[in-house]
Design a protein around this nucleic acid. Structure first.
Lengths: 203, 203
DNA sequence: CATAAGTCGAACATGCGTGTACGACAAGAG
DNA sequence: CTCTTGTCGTACACGCATGTTCGACTTATG
């Protein structure tokens, strides 16, 4: 891993391992190295040839996942109508969450707390900026801490992923459900919840 | 465990183990038997003297937790004003969740799926009844599946517990936050979110 | 096609959590 | 006070996941 593999199949295997690890860990954060190697169609020894540790492997997976996530989330326009912006953010976030699922849980067990906090801060700040924006316009509620609202948004998204995995919620309805849910809860007391016109943006 | 302990200190130890296991597993579902025994101020061997297995121990803990939970949840009046009833239900549910936290996760790993589903069905049905009631009165939204709303309620409550454990949310504000959150997201689009008058019931 | 680079299975070492066995010792019930 | 019932420490057996080592075998690359 310190020096790149010279041969083509080696590089292909590294990719396969990364992919398999992502998929496997997203389903079961406690998956064994053996499971991952098997899922990658590769011997366990080969895996160790490319990644010294479980920790190193997880770190690599997380790093790649974060790069891709950031790439698709960074470009989102958070300005303009807060409700519409929220739908945009949720839509993109949902795709990422569905792909990487419970990978976060696996990461939490082998990554130092500091790094973990740093990894979380980016998306949290994004959501927080959006909510602040909506508050400034009087469109989002101010009677609850922003951090709590952000937490709720994260949690609800995660719950949707779990529900989809469990077959309780159709995957193509998930983003809509999350958006409708969040839009409802972000609307201030004494104010009318935005109607379906906005929600239709999702699908 | 099959036959009750005859001696007083034995019975006391069983209680201590049950208490320690509840507290320890609520924090870390993967806690070892050793940790639990230590937390109970008891030798590991003693623990095995009372509970054959980890599974048996977990089952006992869960069973006791469910008995207590059911006792405090069964009596709740779900009729009348849906918003007020929701606040009542959340208030009681919150106490239970705070005490038993992530114990569910520990249970999921050693209990058969069927039993687990059965254990979940009771509280889910309760919430579902309440939401249905609110829908009938046109006070709760009908544009999302009931099961999703119930899941969300469960998830949000759980997130609150995690936040409190992490010190991000004061314990005495949690129930209020959950109630405000759920009331907000349950209100139908095109309708005014109930104001603070109801929420004040919580605190 | 020759060789360096990579793969693979089997075997081994290690650490950890679980569960059991033993024997000395303490504590409660009658 | 005596004897049954528990407790506790130590030690052991076992299974399981993690890493490592070895040697034979395969594959890309120049």
């Amino acid at each position: 891993m310190t020096t790149r593999p010279r041969r083509a199949d080696a590089r292909r295997n590294v990719e396969a391992i990364l992919d398999a690890a992502t998929a496997t860990l997203a389903r079961d954060p406690d998956a064994s190295i053996n499971d991952i190697a098997k899922a990658a169609g590769v011997g366990r020894v080969t895996l160790y040839g490319h990644f010294e540790n479980r920790a190193v492997l997880v770190a690599a997976v997380v790093e790649r996942a974060m790069r891709e996530s950031e790439a698709s989330l960074r470009g989102i326009d958070l300005s303009g109508d807060p409700a519409a912006a929220l739908v945009r953010l949720i839509d993109a976030t949902w795709q990422v969450t569905l792909r990487y699922g419970a990978l976060v849980v696996a990461a939490e067990k082998s990554m130092p707390v500091a790094e973990m906090a740093a990894a979380h801060s980016e998306p949290r700040e994004r959501a927080q900026r959006l909510i602040d924006h909506g508050r400034d316009l009087g469109r989002f509620r101010t009677d609850l801490p922003v951090s709590w609202l952000v937490t709720t948004m994260h949690t609800v998204t995660h719950a949707a992923a779990t529900s989809v995995y469990a077959g309780e919620l159709p995957a193509d309805e998930a983003a809509h459900a999350i958006a409708a849910t969040m839009l409802g809860l972000l609307t201030p007391p004494g104010q009318t919840v935005p109607d379906v016109g906005v929600l239709r943006l999702v699908r």
